[in-house]
Each structure stands twice: as structure tokens, then as C-alpha cells.
């Protein structure tokens, strides 16, 4: 069964994410990113950032924390096609972020392997005063049932 336009606008439950120094350090280490902005307080204080920040792809770890939205998707048909981050300000250690996932768009397009649907899921990340911090936008390709079967066989 294909996805229906009615899912656009659905939201997941709001959740709070506390940003820990250690988490930022482990995230940067996994990437092998030794930029001192993420780990060295003194260095970071002397830059225009004025203090430590998280790497630009860190919001992906926040999205993984929430329950998400139960759209009854078939994981075999899903492909993470694109990822986008829209920044208002950097994430910093000690931030208490208020996060919520939303279905923002659903559209169809013709791919190399047939017709497919594209689902746009935003995780809106705000600070405690509800000022925007970053939007993590995931573009998911939802392949037709027959295409998904052809590819996995």
C-alpha cells in the first residue's frame, strides 16, 4: 500500500534532549574529527563561537532519541535519500533542547527503477525558550512494493 497525503502534518510526541559534553566528544571521535571546537573549552572560547559547540551533523543523534511517528512504514521499502540541516545557531553542551518530529511533505517522482514516493520528515529542534536551533530534515524514498522486491532479490 502506498502512503497517503493525509499523513502530511502528523507530528510525533515532543521530547527533551540534554546535550552532554561526553556525547559530543564521542560523536566527533567516531567520525575521526579532531576539531578542537568540539572538545577544547579554552580554544573554543577564543573563537567567534565563544565556547564549545557540537559538530554540524550532531542533530542526527537527537532524531534517533525520539519515538518518532508511527507511520506503519515497511522498512524494506525505505531508503534515506537525502539529509539536510537548517541551522539557526550551533548546538552547545548543556543545551536542553525541545524536539519534535513532523511529516512535512509527501510527493511522487519517477526514479530509475520506477515510480516512488518521497517522504520529508523534519525534526524541529528548539531551545528551552522555544527559539529555533536547527531543523534536521530527512528525505526518505519509499519505493513501490514491486521495486523493493526486485532490488532485494
Amino acid at each position: 500500500m502506498d502512503l497517503d497525503k493525509s499523513i502530511v502534518g502528523l507530528t510525533g510526541p515532543e521530547f527533551t534532549f540534554e546535550v552532554e559534553k561526553r556525547h559530543i566528544r564521542q560523536f566527533a571521535q567516531a567520525i575521526g574529527d579532531s576539531n578542537p571546537l568540539y572538545v577544547d573549552e579554552e580554544y573554543a572560547a577564543g573563537t567567534p563561537y565563544g565556547g564549545m559547540i557540537a559538530p554540524p551533523t550532531f542533530p542526527i543523534a537527537i532524531g534517533a532519541e525520539g519515538e518518532g511517528i508511527d507511520l506503519k512504514l515497511d522498512p524494506k521499502r525505505m531508503l534515506h535519500g537525502e539529509q539536510e540541516f537548517i541551522y539557526t545557531r550551533p548546538i552547545r553542551p548543556g543545551d536542553r533542547l525541545i524536539c519534535q518530529m513532523k511529516v512535512t511533505d509527501l510527493y511522487e517522482k519517477e526514479g530509475r527503477s520506477g515510480r516512488m514516493q518521497c517522504l520529508v520528515l523534519d525534526t524541529e529542534i528548539k531551545d528551552e525558550n522555544r527559539s529555533p536551533v536547527v531543523i534536521s530534515r530527512m528525505n526518505i524514498i519509499y519505493r513501490s512494493k514491486t521495486t523493493a522486491q526486485k532490488v532485494s532479490n
Partner: peptide, 26 residues
């Protein structure tokens, strides 16, 4: 992989610029 590109972009930007938008197609 996007993390690698993020490392690269932040290295290029250094202390002179900050990202406002970053997107990648897999």
C-alpha cells in the same frame, strides 16, 4: 559520510564562517 563532509566543511570554515545550511544526497 555526511559527518566526514561536516568535518571538512568546518575545517574549511575555520574561525571565519559558520554553516547555515548543509545538505547531502546519499
Amino acid at each position: 559520510i555526511m559527518g566526514f563532509l561536516g568535518e571538512y566543511v568546518m575545517q574549511v570554515a575555520g574561525a571565519t564562517a559558520e554553516p547555515t545550511n548543509f545538505r547531502m544526497r546519499f
